[in-house]
């Protein structure tokens, strides 16, 4: 069980989710992906899109400066 980190704060839609998807596809069962995003758009969208793919998504954590941490479990 590992925690993978991903920062997409400098990316724009849909590349934010393209990078998230690439990272999700590398996760092993039990792994967690911590995605740092900028703005409430991706903070709403990424959890929703990850959940649609069947991943468990933890409550989004505000991290200041309009950034958020999204933890996604496989």
């Amino acid at each position: 069980m590992a925690i993978q980190e991903l920062d997409v704060t400098r990316d724009r839609c849909p590349i934010t989710f393209v990078k998230t998807r690439i990272a999700l596809d590398k996760l092993l069962p039990g792994d967690v992906l911590r995605v740092r995003v900028s703005g409430d758009g991706p903070a709403r969208n990424i959890p929703r899109s990850a959940a649609e793919l069947g991943f468990a998504v933890r409550p989004v954590i505000p991290a200041g400066d309009d950034t958020y941490i999204i933890e996604i479990e496989r």
Partner: peptide, 8 residues
């Protein structure tokens, strides 16, 4: 498209 994932 409601989410970025829907641009696929």
């Amino acid at each position: 498209a409601e989410t970025c994932a829907m641009a696929g």
